[in-house]
């Protein structure tokens, strides 16, 4: 079997796998946010940045190649990742203690796992009203990290195209594909994949709130680095085309 080196460890891979897929399947964690094992990689958040033969590259879009030397667990790369997480926190309004996604949130879990201890940047404190128009689903735009997972899920799985990202750079934001811009005027359903997939507290089932007590939330039991390995497909069925 082909293999490459990740921080000195030999990682076997099958043709078509990306570096992150092979690493996770082999029990080696590389931090990531916009990558999801069930979706085609998007490569936008850059949290999975590694050095491949010395060059910084997103591990989620990098096809595994025999003999590649990949570095991930280095102080330099983790510093970069911490900075990215701080920037994401600064861009949105994330107040973890009163967010219902707390304990189940990938951004928060990454912050803890990477040891992000300070704000790092001045927060924007944007005023972004929620869209509560839909009877069963709430959209809290304050917490979007622009991972595009909902866009991908709504298109590829639900076949609806409810969401898209608009604008560029700092103006980039999540929008609802309806003339009114309101979620109530789309055909989204509470059972849609797009609702389930949001890694942070943007797309929420209404009236659930804090039903799961502290201690029984997803990342209470184990940090995201361990949880991601638990969740990783062991077989390469989700290959990068």
């Amino acid at each position: 079997m082909n293999s490459f080196l990740l921080d000195g460890a030999e990682i076997p891979f099958e043709p078509g796998q990306t570096v992150i897929q092979a690493a996770l399947a082999a029990g080696h964690y590389i931090p990531h946010l916009c990558y999801h094992p069930e979706f085609v990689p998007h490569g936008s958040c850059k949290l999975c940045t590694v050095r491949a033969d010395g060059r910084p590259t997103a591990a989620c879009t990098l096809p595994a190649q025999a003999g590649l030397k990949v570095e991930s667990e280095t102080e330099e790369l983790n510093d970069l990742r911490r900075t990215l997480v701080q920037m994401l926190f600064a861009e949105g309004n994330h107040f973890c203690p009163s967010c219902e996604k707390s304990g189940n949130c990938v951004l928060q879990a990454l912050g803890y796992d990477l040891g992000v201890m300070t704000a790092g940047f001045r927060h924007f404190f944007l005023d972004r009203p929620v869209d509560a128009s839909h009877p069963d689903i709430l959209l809290d735009f304050n917490r979007c990290v622009l991972c595009k997972l909902c866009v991908r899920a709504s298109e590829e799985v639900d076949g609806k195209g409810v969401f898209s990202l608009a604008g560029r750079g700092i103006q980039r934001r999540l929008i609802v594909s309806a003339e009114s811009g309101r979620l109530a005027d789309t055909d989204i359903a509470v059972t849609d994949k797009a609702v389930e997939v949001c890694p942070v507290g943007v797309i929420l089932r209404k009236r659930v709130g804090f039903r799961v007590p502290i201690g029984r939330r997803r990342f209470d039991a184990r940090p995201i680095s361990a949880q991601a390995l638990e969740d990783a497909p062991r077989k390469p069925e989700h290959k990068h085309e």
């Binding site: 009163s98 219902e100 509560a132 709430l138 709130g209 804090f210």
Partner: peptide, 8 residues
């Protein structure tokens, strides 16, 4: 804000 968030 949604009402279920208020107590927290």
């Amino acid at each position: 804000r949604p009402y279920w968030e208020v107590p927290v």
